[in-house]
Write a protein that binds this DNA or RNA. Structure first.
Lengths: 233, 233
DNA sequence: AACGTTAATATGTATGTACATATTTTGTCA
DNA sequence: TGACAAAATATGTACATACATATTAACGTT
């Protein structure tokens, strides 16, 4: 990758990956130590280290100090998921984006919300319901709770122009994120809002964020029928 | 992290992360070059590089040669998803795992399967339908197509004892993976297999894998009602 | 002003060395 | 034999240096 003579860490990674692919090393097998591989390929140990780091990140291999490196015995399917701001998601599909605030009011957080945050005692939070539209048709309905103790600014925001989704993602970076996906049957209200039939199967993307243990927001993004969430490109 | 005097790359990363959190650098802003940060913190540039690499991987920051480092203007919610082998998933919940082969036969791959692989002309593939059970109750129904040209071994496997899920994950590492999630309404057959009502909302996890452009398998994992897919721990 | 070439520059990579850290292994003593 | 301490060891990190590479900025020519 770097030059034609020197070995790049990606070359080393691919080499080892291939040896795993071809069965040279099977699940649970121990690989040679970095230093030996480095000598074998006549490159620096740090180059092997970088390659191994990547293989470890991708879940193919497990490394432990003194224990060495071994191929994962119980492999997992690991993927990275990118969820953009909804506006951007719509626009990137070449559609026109619209946003509609449905409700915004403060109320004591219900049990489900407290559970998502891992809180025990109840407290008032800001609930924002909104609809994202693609080419004028409902796209995602979001039901969001925001903790005003962590984000006092929200008291002065009405979320009519800019969605809470966008404002939070732009202004409230998080240190911890929980994501969950599941399917629900549309209840009458959801069906009405999303312009579909009650009972329709809907994918829900639930997201909860914190800054250092302090809860920021939790949101249920209820998608329209047929919505698909993809990995990669 | 390393010692008490020297600065570890995680320290540097957290420091910069915090400066982004506190608004010292906002979306789109350009950060100082690595070398300057290194001098500021009196550490090596490679330490800053390592920290920046991590911030870049986590989607918080974008780096371009000569262009420098800047805070992502359109942030994304990035998460890593680990999908274990179904057997292990069940066992880790403390439940008993059972597996039931429903059908195994060769047939021309339908359009949807060819589309998933990105193939144009049809060809025969092995279809395997199976049920994973948790404590004797249906857990996931998998509808899988395997390309026998890429994995000739499957011709001699009956998948009665070991599931195709497990065999493939253990023996067929992939180089490319596509994942998609969506919701469906159970049709009568699915409802019957999963012991639920027709019309129930079900989460579907669709997975397609390749080795270097050669298709391995594509599978629809149709989960039981209430199933949730989580990130992190 | 428009365009293509050249220089400048910030990040990316490779290397060697020196320690740090987490485990395992070994050794010792009761 | 068993428990605990000490040595051995493989990975992890930090640093300094040298070069590679991609991209922007500068510059001159038409």
């Amino acid at each position: 990758m770097t030059s034609d003579s020197r070995l790049s860490w990606k070359d080393v990674r691919d080499r080892i990956h291939e040896q795993i692919l071809t069965g040279r090393y099977g699940p649970g097998d121990r690989l040679p130590r970095d230093a030996d591989i480095a000598e074998d390929l006549s490159c620096a140990r740090s180059t092997v280290q970088r390659a191994m780091q990547d293989l470890s990140d991708s879940g193919l291999v497990e490394r432990r100090r003194k224990g060495g490196t071994r191929v994962r015995a119980e492999p997992v399917t690991r993927a990275t998921l990118d969820i953009p701001i909804t506006r951007r998601e719509v626009e990137q599909r070449g559609a026109r984006y619209d946003y509609q605030l449905i409700s915004r009011r403060t109320a004591p957080a219900p049990r489900g919300v407290l559970a998502a945050f891992g809180l025990s005692r109840s407290r008032p939070m800001l609930r924002v319901e909104a609809l994202h539209l693609s080419d004028g048709r409902p796209y995602i309905f979001e039901d969001r709770w925001i903790c005003p103790e962590t984000s006092p600014e929200v008291r002065d925001l009405d979320f009519t122009g800019q969605s809470a989704n966008e404002w939070l993602v732009l202004n409230k970076p998080y240190t911890r994120l929980d994501l969950r996906f599941y399917a629900i049957s549309a209840n009458p209200r959801q069906a009405d809002l999303l312009d579909t039939e009650p009972g329709a199967a809907l994918l829900v993307i639930e997201r909860t964020t914190w800054v250092d243990e302090a809860p920021i927001t939790t949101v249920k993004a209820i998608t329209t029928p047929g919505y698909q969430l993809l990995t990669g490109t």
